[in-house]
Amino acid sequence: MSTDYQRARDALGARLRELRFLCPGGRLTGRELAHRVGWAGSKVSKLENGKQTATPKDLRAWADATGRPEVYPELAARLAGFESHIRSWRRALANGFKPLHEGLSAELDRSSDLWVWEESVIAGLLQTPEYARHVIDRYAQLLGGASDIEDAVRSRARRQEWLYRPGRTLHVLMWEAALRSRICPPSVLAAQLDRLTGMLGMDTVELGIVPFTASVKIVPANGFWILDDRLVVAEDWHAELWLDDAENVSLYGKVWQTLRASAVYGADAHRIINAARRDLIPQ
């Protein structure tokens, strides 16, 4: 993916390669460095070419093995600077919605399990095209810089093919507010809620709703996706965050499980969706 995050990872890899080339005892080959730290040779290549994110332990070992232990704080600072990668919406949308959707779709294709939390909008993989169109259009109006809304709607619809592939499971939690937010006309929301009802019985979808009346242990906020326990994609008003360090992935997993404890499923979730649907009918 071509993101600020990947550019930062590439830059760190280039710095690691420089340290290997300028080792005080003479230039090391990748194989020699791997032997010194007890790694497979492929790991050196992956780190230098931005194909793998280093851990603090990796960076310490690299600094020591290249005879430059004093550079470890610099390397650690570089890592800390992009572990919480922020991809600015305005900068990203300068190229339209399509690259944004393609980047996430590529990561999704690599994943077999997806854990999603949404507090105020229907999860993207469950959206009808009309509902998605209104959501995307509202973001485009707010942020500007993107006119390919129809392409984005089609891309989001194609992404939903993931749900019908063998071995894939979507674990999705939504706050009741997501069922009631009038981001679109009532008729569009009604069709969206009808679709949710139809998806409750899918083998590949585990859909939980956190009712307004539920006792919650944390504030139901900040939508996010967890892909295979290896990557978190979280959204804020100004940016999208891609987090792949183990500590943050674990934290978001804990948040999801905490929210799940307040959710209802099956017939209880069905009743909440139907109640939101009935409230759309003029009295």
Rank of each mutant, 00 (worst) to 15 (best):
S2A: 13
Q6C: 00
R7M: 11
R7K: 14
A8K: 15
A14N: 09
E18L: 11
L19S: 02
P24K: 02
G25L: 01
L28T: 05
R31N: 06
R36L: 01
W39F: 01
G41R: 02
K43L: 13
N49V: 08
T53N: 11
L59W: 06
A61S: 14
D64V: 13
A65L: 12
G67A: 10
E70F: 09
E70K: 11
E74A: 13
E74H: 10
A76F: 04
A80Q: 14
F82M: 10
W89N: 05
R90Q: 15
G96C: 09
F97V: 02
H101K: 07
G103R: 10
R110K: 15
S112E: 11
V116F: 10
V116M: 09
W117G: 00
E118I: 01
S120T: 08
G124P: 01
L126H: 02
E130S: 13
E130M: 08
A132R: 11
D137S: 15
R138N: 12
R138D: 14
Y139T: 09
Q141P: 07
L142Y: 15
L143E: 13
G145Q: 04
S147Q: 14
D151H: 15
A152D: 01
S155M: 15
R158L: 11
Q160L: 01
W162T: 07
R165C: 15
R165V: 12
P166R: 08
H171T: 06
V172E: 11
L173R: 04
A178F: 03
R180Q: 12
S181R: 14
C184P: 02
C184S: 14
P185C: 04
P185Q: 04
P185V: 05
L189A: 06
L196E: 14
L196N: 12
T197M: 11
G201C: 09
G201P: 04
M202D: 12
E206Q: 14
G208N: 09
G208I: 09
V210I: 14
V210P: 06
P211H: 03
V216P: 08
V219Y: 06
P220H: 02
N222Y: 06
F224I: 08
F224A: 09
I226C: 01
L227K: 00
L227S: 01
R230N: 02
R230M: 03
L231N: 01
V232I: 12
D236Y: 10
W237D: 01
E240Q: 13
L243V: 10
E247G: 08
V249M: 04
K254C: 05
T258H: 03
Y265A: 05
Y265P: 02
I272C: 05
I272H: 08
I273H: 03
N274Y: 03
A275K: 05
R277I: 05
R277P: 05
L280A: 07
L280D: 08
P282F: 08
